[in-house]
Amino acid sequence: MQKALVIDPGKCTGCKQCEMACSYEKDNEFNVAKSRIRVFEFHEDGKFVPYTCTQCAEAWCQQACPVNAITTDAASGVKLVHDNLCVGCKVCTIACPFGTVNYNSTTGKVIKCDLCFGEPACEAACPTDAITYQDIDQTGFDKMKMWAKQSADGAEPSGPNPPVAH
């Protein structure tokens, strides 16, 4: 089963623990400037939104790469950048419509989220469950449940229901 990061901006407080966890996982230091996930603050609306790569099924970054340095991990669906192949041309950073592939001037390669090979550090670090890691085919589960609860509220349990003849 493939899994995906599910982000609920309504729960985010803007603490950036996810950015620190990401940079530490990848570079062994706390450095939000090199994080693959970023939290955006919309101050005047009082909103905070974590944002990162969604691992497109047909990834524009992958298709744009002239040296085939981005491959798909069949089991997880993750788009992986191979540092030994990446030449730092940055074409993928232009191709990605979401801006989630970025150049790292320290290494001369591009970086993007790889879901930490199944154990996303950002998800583990999030103190409010604004970032969770769920079945990729059921990422709407929590929202559906919330709306289902809303339609259930106000209705009494109906008791045993007899079948209806059609």
Partner: peptide
Amino acid sequence: LLTNQACFGCTIACGRISK
């Protein structure tokens, strides 16, 4: 009160955001 906000790295998030 609209929401609460954390400072950098804070897992308490006591900050108030108001309108």
